[in-house]
Computed example of a mutant assay.
Amino acid sequence: MPQPAPADVDLLHRLVAIESRSGQEHDAVAELCREMTARGFAAAPDAAGSAVGVIGTGATKIVLLGHIDTVPGRIAVRIEDGVLHGRGAVDAKGPLCAFVCAAQAAIAAGANATITVVGAAGEEAIGSVGANAVAAWPAPDLCIIGEPSGWDALCLGYRGTLSLFYRLRRPARHSAGPGESVAEEAIAFWNALRAELDVRNQGAAGSFQRIGHALRAFNTGGDGLHDHATLSIGLRLPPGLDVEAVLIRLHDLAGDATITVDGCQEGYRSAKQSPLVPPFLRAIRAAGGAPRFTLKLGTSDMTVVGPVWRCPIVAYGPGDAALDHTPDERIVLADYARAIRVLTDVLVAS
């Protein structure tokens, strides 16, 4: 079973050990910049608070876009039986550290490329501030997004996201009086929204093409004069969806309640004919794997830079995405080693 170099394990262990919730990435960014500088990168934080390192001067411009922030929740950082446990080990410091290690190895092996590694800030927060700053750069020749696809899998697409609030305000009423409470009216809206999505999802070719929905929070209250209800809602958007038409329909269903959009990012999907696909397939097979393709039901920074750059783009990285955001987040170090090898081969071949 392959094992990563001690220095590569140490990098991952140190970075996972530094808490870096969205908006609190500074210490982790500083550490990653120090590490990249020590490995021969020109590295510094950018204006958005992301870590950016450049190595090589070759003709092919490649951006390896990972993210350094994590969701909340501290997990004791430790290595047991070849497995590193800790918040961010999978999502997505494992893929990010694999980017750094592979970029250094590829340039040392003679890759004719200029490779930029980004540890973006704010990917887990609405607005993805780091990736939106990067999207303003000139388009590279190739881009790989650092997310846990599994070392032997290549992710070709992600659904987008629509985050919104439903707010209803009514004159205060006695609970024994006639009519519906604001809570009941809000529930009726939620049920109508779900029924609308069921209609729109009819005939969808699999879960990736369906509009997903989640009721994130439901709050009611009042001040004695008025009662209010607030729903926080998240929708997952398949590529190609007419988002404006969906929003118009949501406003219709809401009646005199207000709908406020908190963030919107449309879905994005690459084709299997992408020039990045063949080198990944060869590299995964060379490392002993049987390559496979995935489409993710969540979202990532692919949906931010993909529509802007329109360059060949895929997502790749070690780790089991089912462990994202869970108390059991962990990464198998042998898979981390395999991913570094695969990425190195891809970068040399590109």
Results as ranks from 00 to 15, higher is better:
residue 2 P to R: 15
residue 5 A to F: 08
residue 6 P to M: 01
residue 6 P to S: 07
residue 9 V to R: 13
residue 16 V to F: 11
residue 17 A to I: 00
residue 19 E to K: 13
residue 19 E to F: 02
residue 22 S to D: 11
residue 28 A to Q: 09
residue 30 A to M: 09
residue 32 L to I: 01
residue 32 L to M: 09
residue 34 R to V: 05
residue 40 G to N: 13
residue 45 P to E: 00
residue 48 A to Q: 12
residue 53 G to P: 03
residue 54 V to G: 00
residue 61 K to T: 13
residue 66 G to W: 04
residue 70 T to H: 02
residue 75 I to G: 15
residue 75 I to H: 12
residue 76 A to I: 10
residue 76 A to H: 15
residue 79 I to P: 02
residue 79 I to D: 03
residue 82 G to T: 11
residue 83 V to E: 10
residue 85 H to W: 13
residue 86 G to E: 10
residue 90 V to L: 02
residue 90 V to S: 02
residue 91 D to F: 10
residue 93 K to R: 00
residue 98 A to T: 05
residue 99 F to W: 09
residue 112 N to G: 05
residue 119 G to V: 08
residue 120 A to Y: 09
residue 123 E to N: 08
residue 123 E to T: 12
residue 124 E to M: 11
residue 126 I to V: 10
residue 127 G to Y: 15
residue 128 S to D: 11
residue 130 G to P: 05
residue 135 A to L: 02
residue 141 D to G: 13
residue 145 I to N: 06
residue 146 G to A: 05
residue 146 G to V: 00
residue 148 P to Q: 06
residue 153 A to G: 12
residue 155 C to Q: 15
residue 155 C to L: 12
residue 158 Y to S: 07
residue 159 R to D: 01
residue 161 T to F: 07
residue 165 F to L: 15
residue 166 Y to P: 13
residue 173 R to L: 02
residue 173 R to F: 07
residue 174 H to M: 13
residue 180 E to V: 06
residue 184 E to F: 01
residue 186 A to K: 00
residue 186 A to L: 08
residue 189 F to T: 09
residue 189 F to Q: 07
residue 192 A to R: 15
residue 194 R to L: 13
residue 195 A to F: 08
residue 197 L to R: 07
residue 201 N to G: 11
residue 202 Q to I: 09
residue 206 G to A: 09
residue 211 I to D: 12
residue 217 A to H: 14
residue 217 A to M: 13
residue 231 L to A: 14
residue 234 G to W: 02
residue 234 G to D: 14
residue 234 G to V: 08
residue 240 G to T: 03
residue 242 D to N: 14
residue 245 A to D: 12
residue 246 V to C: 11
residue 248 I to F: 12
residue 250 L to G: 11
residue 259 I to R: 01
residue 263 G to T: 11
residue 266 E to G: 02
residue 266 E to H: 07
residue 268 Y to A: 14
residue 268 Y to P: 06
residue 270 S to I: 12
residue 271 A to T: 13
residue 271 A to E: 11
residue 287 A to Q: 08
residue 288 G to Y: 00
residue 289 G to L: 08
residue 289 G to T: 03
residue 290 A to H: 10
residue 291 P to I: 01
residue 297 L to A: 06
residue 300 S to V: 03
residue 300 S to H: 04
residue 303 T to R: 11
residue 303 T to A: 13
residue 304 V to L: 12
residue 304 V to F: 01
residue 312 P to R: 11
residue 325 H to E: 06
residue 327 P to M: 06
residue 330 R to V: 11
residue 344 T to S: 05
residue 344 T to H: 01
residue 346 V to E: 02
residue 348 V to H: 11
residue 348 V to S: 01
residue 350 S to H: 08
